[in-house]
Amino acid sequence: MLTPREKWLLVVIGSENYVEGKTRLHKYGLLVYKKVPDIEEFYQDWTPNNYGVFSPSLAKGLQTLQIQEYVVADQFISTSGRSVNRYKITEKGRNEIKELLEKQQEQVRKISEIIHHYFTKSLNVVLNDVYSLFPEFTTKSKIIPDVNKFKLEQEEFFEQELDDLIEEKLESDLTNLVTRETTEYVYNDEDIREKLAKKIGLRAIPKLDSSAFDKLSGLLANRIKSKEIDSVDVVRTVRGS
């Protein structure tokens, strides 16, 4: 008999054909824990470790699932030349979560979205996002330099990509050239957004809107009578220089 959280772990593993490696599985686990808070029972013992974040009880749960043949693991050689386990849900595993899939459709959908989003992406992308979103779990990580290097490479690639497009003299708006998608509240700051919105009398968090950049620009201009201000000077006054 599986515990509820072992069943949820089965849902995570079964959301795609397989999950490549323990490191990725633990990162998926943390993302699910943080992004799908309405799951009643899930792994909560997240601690910083050599690879960023680790849950001892999830590791134990995975072992249980393998021993009881709800999950199988086959080994393959990753692009970095390391031998990695690829975890797959079995038919027995699928039968075990049938009821859960029917009764908790909303939570299952949210989990599937996360796993589907990262399934085709490299481990570096998963690490990059998890390290950016949850830095509190990276304090013991031995791979921070590698993750930072990847971040820098991504930025350089992005800038090059943008430069190439500009050189092609495309006439469309520059902002339309950006291929990155902005998922609403992707940065896990819903709670503070909600609090700030409520504090200023809004009923809900405003929807993201690129035109707000233009509305914000010069917003104070007609509210300040003084001819000119120096933002550094004004801020230093407030900071107490």
Binding site: S217, L219, L220, A221, I224, E228, V234, V235
Partner: peptide, 15 residues
Amino acid sequence: DTNILIAYVSGPQKD
């Protein structure tokens, strides 16, 4: 930093 936000919302005439 705060001074960047303040400069942006102040606009080109004020800052």
